[in-house]
Structures are given as C-alpha cells and as structure tokens.
Design a protein around this nucleic acid. Structure first.
Lengths: 125, 125, 125, 125
DNA sequence: GTGGTCTAGACCACG
DNA sequence: GTGGTCTAGACCACG
C-alpha cells in the first residue's frame, strides 16, 4: 500500500518514486513486470495525474522503469538502482550526522532500536 | 566552522540551526554561553541577517537557546534537545528505509562505511 | 473579522495567531478546513505577506494548522491547542497579579465587570 | 524579594515598576516612606543603574512616588494608582480574551485554579 | 495560485 | 550594539 504525506518537505512525486522503488526492491514487481498505470494510480491516491506522470518520467530517466507507448510502464534491468534509491537519503543523513559530530555508535543504536520497534509493531511483509 | 550548502532542499536557516546545535552538542558552547550575534554570523556567512534571525528564533522556540534583547542569544538549559535535533532526520530516514523493506544490516553497513570514510577524510574534530 | 492594533507591545503576527485561534475555537474553521490564503489575508489587512506568513508558520510549528505547499493552510487536529493559546496570556497575568498580592476576588470582579461591559457594548458573536 | 526575568517581552524597567507598586500595594512601603535608592537596587539586582532610574522616573511621572533631590524617592499620596497598575495588564488580557470569544466562566475558572494552586504552593506573605 | 525561502533595508526598544 | 519586527519585492517548487 502506498501512503502519501501531503505535509512535510518531500514532494509527492518523490514519495511516489520511493514507493515504486520500494516495491521493486521487495520483489513485488520484477524485471519487465508492468507497474500500475499512472492514471489509475493517480485516481487511487486522489492525486493529480500529472504528479504521477512526473514521478514515472523521473524513474524512466533514472533507468529504473521503461515506458512503451500505448502499453504502459515496465520494470527495467536496473541493476540495483531501485535499492540504492531507497537508501540514498539515509546515507546523506548519516554523513550529515557524522560531520556534525554525532558518534557512529549513536547512529547504530538508533538503527537497532528503530528496527526492534518495527519488528514489534507489525509483522506484515 | 559553519558551512552552508546552497544546493539541495535543506533551507539555509535549518542548516544554521543544525550547525549551532552541533556546536552545543560538542560542547563548543555550554549552558548560558553566548552564541555569535545574529548580524555578525550573517556577515561571516555572507547571508542576510534575517535568515540567521529566523534560525535563532526557531532555536529559541525549541528551547535550545534564549535571547535577551539588547544583549544577545545564549544557550538554554535544553536537556539534550540540541543532540536530539542532530539525529532526528537520521532517525526519520532510518524508519522510512526500514518500512520500505531495507534490511537493518544494510543500514548499519552504510553507517560503518560512511564513518570509515569520514575518519579517513579529515581528522578535524 | 480580524482587527489589528498597531499600538502596544503585541506584534502583529501574534495578533494574527490569536485571531485565527479565536476563529478556530469558535468553530468558524473546523478540522481540515482551509483558512484564508496568507497573501489574501495580508491584502485584506493591508499588511506585508511576510507578516502573515510568519504567523501561519508559528501556528504550524505549534500544531494548530498544517500547510500544504501549493494548496493552502488547514486546521490541524490540534486537541484544544487553539483554545489554550487564547487563555495563556490571561493565565500568566492572573498568576502575576496573584503573586503580587492582588486578592482573588479583585480579579474576579474585574472579569465580571469587563464581561458586563462587553455584553452591553456589542452583541456580535 | 524582587525577581527579574531578562527573557520575555516585558522590559526590565517595567518589571521594576510592577515590583515597587506591588510592595506599595501590600503595605511594605507606606505614604512618604523612602524606597530603596536606585543605585543600591541596581547593584542588588545586577542591573544597569540607568534601568532602575528609568523605572523610578516613570513611577514619578505617574504620581506614585516623588523624588527629593539629594534625599531619595518616597511613596506619594497616590490614591490607589499602585494597585491599579498591578491589575491593568490583567484587565487588558481579560478584555482580549472575552473579545476573542472566551466565555466569562472559563476565565473565572482559571483565576480560581490559579489561586488554589498559589495557596497550596507557598504560604509566604 | 499557493506556500516557502531569501535578500535588502529600515526602524525600534532596550540597556 | 543587540535582538525584534516589519515592509518590499523577488524567485522557486509544487500541483
């Protein structure tokens, strides 16, 4: 399930990109699988079709999906790009925290406790 | 030293907040210490005074500093708020990555390698 | 109707915050209702847009409204924060007066007579 | 005991005025009593002498004290002006709250609970 | 159109 | 000198 947060600084199209990459990384969509039509997804999420179209065009530009006119969008042979996209924000924030002087161990502790909480919270997926 | 990154989505005033919190967390400024005058910092960074003033007023609202009109801004008894502010982005991105299905170990590996690189890169701090 | 008092020590942005909270508390705007666009309100009140924007951003930080860039500002699930904001100044002044030695009954008398006068003066609301 | 809050919007000289009025209203200083010398009070509170002098000159202008060159400042026949000064902020905030739509009873409840808390807290004075 | 950010510059009270 | 407030006006991303 894709959930969109209209509050906050992350643009909606970016959230869509992340969600699709997440589903690709988790194997929901495999290479050459068709992903949901932009218009259908827009309707489902109550978004402007242009917003979803923008997300898809970014994913295409990044080599994660490819589009076939009149057919739809499909997962490309992306060689891990989808996975990398999921962690690039995390990596940037890691570097920022480290350069601000936060000790490595503090960060690892945060990861551990977040993971423990996530495990406890829900066993879906 | 505070460095500002013009590119990217993080507003300048937010970067200033982070930098000041970093210096407080590292003990550069202790409780009731005076932090640099808004106008002086603006001049040093080549920014408009309003931008620094905005950052300072946010830090005051958050209880990390207090301002005395006509005197300056001082570090408040903030009870770890400065430290928390440095890691809250990291924590949010950790949770996002985990809920997207990224394995805990992948995140820890990223932290480790970023820390190794940071250590190699510069020995300041 | 929002009226602004230029004289006195209360900043304009604070008066806007109070006014908006008053309208939320009175039910003029309910949860998820859109409040007036910052620029429209500024024009109506003859103020600079930045002043209204400052008020709105404070209300957002306080969790009373949330903003959706490109859409507008909306009333948040604020759990009485709007009401509390309307009485916090009064409460502070109550405590100050009491600790200065003003008898409780004197304060109640003031409230009673102010309320009587307000009722007589105008029947709006 | 006079305590000064250097944070917040209330100027120091205004706080001094309030404190002196409070002591007059409570009968600590009676008509024609000498109040503390400005310079002595400044030293005691760690303030700039000009700040205390400003407070005293305002009290004199308002007819609450009178000064005798070379002798000091004394409590004037002020006919309740000192008491009124202690409640004028409270009265203003009462009116603001009422005009914002806060019910009279809510304000009275706040006074009652603040008084109850004050009684419980300390029995000094 | 909407909010978000930033620059530029002014004036003020306070101390 | 210092912070606080405000106006004026610009540019941007988003949708």
């Amino acid at each position: 399930m894709i959930t969109i947060d209209i509050t906050g600084r992350t643009p909606i199209y970016e959230q869509i990109c992340k969600s699709v990459c997440g589903e690709i990384a988790r194997g929901v969509y495999k290479e050459n699988d068709r992903i949901p039509a932009a218009r259908a997804l827009a309707k489902e999420l109550g978004l402007n079709p242009n917003t979803v179209a923008k997300a898809y065009s970014i994913l295409e530009r990044d080599g994660i999906i490819y589009s076939v006119a009149g057919k739809g969008c499909f997962v490309a042979k992306h060689e891990g790009k989808a996975d990398k996209r999921l962690t690039e924000d995390f990596e940037r924030k890691t570097k920022e925290a480290l350069s601000a002087g936060v000790p490595k161990q503090t960060l690892i502790d945060i990861v551990e406790s977040a993971a423990a909480e996530a495990e406890k919270g829900g066993n879906e997926q």
